[in-house]
Nucleic acid binder design. Structure first.
Length: 499
RNA sequence: CGAGCAGUGGCGCAGCCGGUAGCGCACGUGGUUCGGGACCACGGGGCCGCGGGUUCGAAUCCCGCCUGCUCGACCA
C-alpha cells in the first residue's frame, strides 16, 4: 500500500500545514543559508505569472523598468533620518573585497583580507529609495522631466531573525516603483493609484480579497509621509500585508537634493512615491485558497492549468487514450491554456491525481476507454466536482470552466473575512475576539490615534492596527469613541493579529 | 537575538546503556497491473548536519558551530 507523505491537516497545525503544502507542491525549499529559500520551478513560475500581469499593469500606467545596483554606499542610508532608523537593524554589509587563505581547515580556511577592507562599507539594498533618488537628482532638471515613473524588479536583503518560507525570508524578490512628481497632490494620487493597481491584481488574479487603507504612524514605512497598504485575512484568521504604497513627500528629495525648475522659473524639491509587492504574495496565495490536499491555485496564476491523465488497461487502450490526450493537449495549447499531459506508465492514475492536486492544478481531464468511446473527457475540478465534457469544442468549454473556477475561488475567499470580522467592537468584545476560541480576524472599531493605545493593545492581545480603512471598507456608522480608551475617535481602525 | 525541540540513503523514521547501520516509501530492471495513492522478484544508493575531543573503537559519550521547527522581542 504505497502512501506518499501526507500533508498535515490545517486543523491540526496550521503552520506545519503551510510548510507541507509548499514542500509537496514543490514551490520552494530551504537553502543551506539561514533564512534564505530556493524558489523551485513550480513556485517561480507562479512568480513569473504574477510579474507578467503586474508588469503589464505598470506599463499601462506609464511606468518604465530600470535596474539599480544591489550595493548602496552606507552613507546614503544615513541621509534620511527616519529611514536609517528603520533599516539600520537589519542590513547586510559588504566590508571587504578579497579573501585570504589561513592554512586552517573547514570554515576557518578563509578569512577577509584585512588589506582589502573598504573605506566605506556597502549596504546590500534593503530597499532602493536612497540610490534611486540619488540618480533622480541627476536626471531631473525641470518640471518638463516630471513626472518620472520608474520601476525595478529585483532582490532585497533584510536580516530577519525569524523566517518563514515566502512570508519572511532574509532575501526576497520584489518590485519597487519609484516616482517623482511636481506637486504633492500628484504624488498622493500616484500612491493611491498604485494601491488600486495592486488591489485589482490581488482580487482579479490572485482571487484574494483585501482591505485597503492607511497605516498608522507606528506602522508606516520609515521615511514616508503616508503609507497605504493592502491586507488579506488568511485561513487562520491572521492578517497578511500583501503590498504597500507610500507617499514620501519631499523627505528623500530634500535628503538627496532632487530639485527641479518650476514653470515660473523657481526651484523646488520633487514629491516622491514608492510602492512594492513581493514574493510574499505567493504565501498569501497559499493561505487564501489551499486545503488539506495541497495547493489550490487560481487558474490565472497556475503554472499548469489543465493536466490530462490518460487511463488504460491494454496496450491498445493506452495508444488510444494517449493519442486523444495528445490531440486535446495541442488543442488547448493553441487556445493559450497551460497544459500537461501525464504519460508516465510507472504510476497508477490515482497516484497522479494526488500529485497534481498537491501542486494546485485547477482542472484535471481523465481520458479512459469509456471516454474515448463516448468522445468525451472526465473533468475534475481541484475545487471539487467531476463531470464529463464533450471533446467537441473542448477548448472553449475548458476556458469557461477555468474562468468559473477563478471567480468561484474569489467568491469563496470573500466569505472568510466577512465571516471573521466584527464591527463596532467594545474593549471587552475586542479582547474576547482576539484571544477567544474564535481565533480572531478583522476587528473594526473607533481609534483615538494614540501610539500608547496601539502599544497597549498589542501587548495585551497581540493585535495591531492593520489599516485605517478606505471609505468603501468602513462601517456604515462611524465610531465616535476609541474602543480601547474611550476618548474621542479620530478614525475607524481595523485590528488583527498579523504575519 | 534569547528559550525549548530536532538533524541517520531522495522522503518518513528505528538504532543512541559505545563494537562500524536498518525498516517503510521512493528509485532501477523484469513481469503482472492501471477509472482515486498497485503487486511480486531481484537490485542500486548512507562524509549518520559540520568541526573538535574522550576511547583500542563513536551514529551512540563530551564541547563548539550550522540548519530547521515552535515560542518570545523585531519586521514585506
Amino acid at each position: 500500500m504505497a502512501q506518499a507523505k501526507k500533508i498535515t491537516p490545517r486543523a491540526h497545525d496550521y503552520s506545519e500545514w503551510y510548510n507541507d503544502v509548499i514542500m509537496q507542491a514543490e514551490l520552494a525549499d530551504h537553502s543551506p543559508v539561514r533564512g534564505c529559500m530556493v524558489i523551485r520551478p513550480h513556485g517561480y513560475r507562479i512568480w513569473e505569472l504574477m510579474q507578467r500581469a503586474l508588469d503589464d499593469m505598470f506599463k499601462a500606467t506609464g511606468h518604465q523598468n530600470a535596474y539599480f545596483p544591489l550595493f548602496i554606499p552606507m552613507s546614503f542610508l544615513a541621509k534620511e533620518a527616519e529611514h536609517v532608523e528603520g533599516f539600520a537593524k537589519e542590513v547586510a554589509l559588504v566590508t571587504h573585497t578579497r579573501l585570504m587563505a589561513t592554512g586552517k581547515a573547514g570554515a576557518q580556511a578563509l578569512m577577509p583580507d584585512p588589506a582589502s577592507a573598504l573605506e566605506e562599507p556597502l549596504v546590500v539594498r534593503p530597499t532602493s529609495e536612497t540610490i534611486i533618488y540619488a540618480m533622480f537628482a541627476k536626471w531631473i532638471q525641470s518640471y518638463r522631466d516630471l513626472p518620472l515613473l520608474m520601476n525595478q524588479w529585483c532582490n532585497i536583503v533584510r536580516w530577519e531573525l525569524r523566517t518563514r518560507l515566502f512570508l519572511r525570508t532574509t532575501e526576497f524578490l520584489w518590485q519597487e516603483g519609484h516616482t517623482a512628481h511636481a506637486t504633492e497632490p500628484e504624488a498622493e494620487a500616484e500612491a493611491r493609484r498604485m494601491l488600486g493597481v495592486y488591489r485589482t491584481f490581488q482580487e482579479q488574479w490572485m482571487a484574494m480579497p483585501v482591505i485597503t487603507g492607511r497605516k498608522t504612524d507606528s506602522e508606516k514605512f520609515a521615511g514616508a509621509v503616508r503609507t497605504y497598504a493592502l491586507e488579506g485575512l488568511m485561513q487562520d484568521n491572521k492578517a497578511l500585508q500583501a503590498g504597500t504604497s507610500h507617499n514620501l513627500g519631499q523627505n528623500f528629495a530634500k535628503a538627496f537634493q532632487v530639485k527641479y525648475q518650476t514653470a515660473p522659473g523657481g526651484l523646488d524639491y520633487v514629491w516622491n512615491t514608492s510602492w512594492g509587492v513581493t514574493t510574499r504574495m505567493i504565501g498569501g496565495l497559499v493561505m487564501t485558497h489551499s486545503d488539506d490536499n495541497g495547493l489550490v491555485c487560481p487558474p490565472k496564476l497556475a503554472p499548469v492549468q489543465v493536466v490530462i491523465v490518460p487511463i488504460w488497461k491494454s496496450e491498445e487502450e493506452r495508444g488510444q487514450a494517449s493519442g486523444v490526450g495528445g490531440r486535446v493537449k495541442t488543442e488547448l495549447e493553441q487556445a493559450g491554456i497551460r497544459v500537461e499531459l501525464d504519460l508516465r506508465d510507472n504510476m497508477k492514475p490515482g497516484a497522479k491525481y494526488f500529485e497534481w492536486e498537491a501542486k494546485g492544478v485547477p482542472l484535471r481531464l481523465e481520458i479512459g476507454p469509456r471516454d474515448v468511446a463516448a468522445g468525451q473527457a472526465m473533468a475534475a475540478r481541484r475545487t471539487g466536482g467531476k463531470a464529463p465534457i464533450k471533446l467537441d469544442g473542448l477548448a472553449r468549454t475548458v476556458a469557461g470552466v477555468l474562468e468559473e473556477i477563478q471567480t468561484g475561488l474569489f467568491a469563496a475567499a470573500r466569505e472568510r473575512p466577512e465571516a471573521h470580522s466584527v464591527r463596532g467592537v467594545t474593549k471587552q468584545q475586542f479582547i474576547e475576539f482576539m484571544k477567544g476560541a474564535g481565533g480572531g480576524g478583522f476587528a473594526y472599531g473607533g481609534f483615538c490615534g494614540s501610539g500608547g493605545c496601539e502599544a497597549e493593545i498589542k501587548q495585551e492581545t497581540g493585535a495591531t492596527v492593520r489599516v485605517l480603512p478606505d471609505p468603501e471598507f468602513r462601517s456604515a456608522e462611524a465610531p465616535t469613541t476609541c474602543m480601547w480608551c474611550g476618548k474621542p475617535s479620530v478614525a475607524e481602525a481595523v485590528w488583527a493579529q498579523a504575519y
